[in-house]
Each structure stands twice: as structure tokens, then as C-alpha cells.
């Protein structure tokens, strides 16, 4: 199994960070690094998607919850 090169990974993350902060542009990033960064982006976007979906579900539950409270209040008033 291929050995994981922690230094390389850290370097890629640093480059990605610099790219996001616009302290470097793509012309000076090695092609192989660009591929790696894109892969990282894929994972990040996927994770973000999952997180958004979770929050959406939670919001739905909160709405249900709110509806329950409204119902209770209505009953109470009656």
C-alpha cells in the first residue's frame, strides 16, 4: 500500500489555502497539486451538501415543533 506523505498533504492544503485567500494564483501550482486540490474540493462540497441537508431536515422538524406549540396554544385558549 502506498505510504501517505503527510508533508505533501500539508503542502497541498497550504497551497489550497493560499489559493483561496488569493495570495497565489493557479499558474504557479503544479498540475498534480491542482488535481489533488480539486479532489479535496469534491469532498468538501459533498460534506457541505450533507450538512445543508441535515440542517434542512432539522428546520423541517423545528417547523413541526412550532406547529405543535401553536396547536397547544390554541387548545389552551379554548
Amino acid at each position: 500500500m502506498e505510504k501517505i506523505d503527510c508533508n505533501k498533504i500539508q503542502r497541498i492544503l497550504d497551497i489550497k489555502n493560499d489559493f483561496e485567500n488569493e495570495t497565489i494564483n493557479s499558474t504557479i501550482i503544479l498540475p498534480e497539486y491542482i488535481e489533488c486540490i480539486n479532489t479535496i474540493y469534491d469532498t468538501e462540497l459533498k460534506n457541505q451538501d450533507e450538512e445543508i441537508n441535515k440542517i434542512k431536515l432539522n428546520i423541517d422538524k423545528l417547523y413541526d415543533n412550532m406547529q405543535e406549540i401553536i396547536d397547544k396554544l390554541k387548545n389552551k385558549e379554548q
Binding site: E35, Q48, I59
Partner: peptide
């Protein structure tokens, strides 16, 4: 293509982050 994708991914991430933030605030 990979370079182009890099910029697109960056934009997508930013948009996603804003979206995520908005949902969190709503929640």
C-alpha cells in the same frame, strides 16, 4: 481543464458556504 475546475470549485464552495450560513441562521 483541471485549472478551470479549480476556480469553479472555489466559487462553488463559497456559494455553498453562504448557503450553509443562511440555513444555520434560519435554524
Amino acid at each position: 481543464y483541471n485549472t478551470k475546475l479549480l476556480y469553479i470549485n472555489k466559487d462553488r464552495k463559497e456559494i455553498q458556504e453562504r448557503k450553509l450560513m443562511a440555513y444555520k441562521q434560519r435554524e
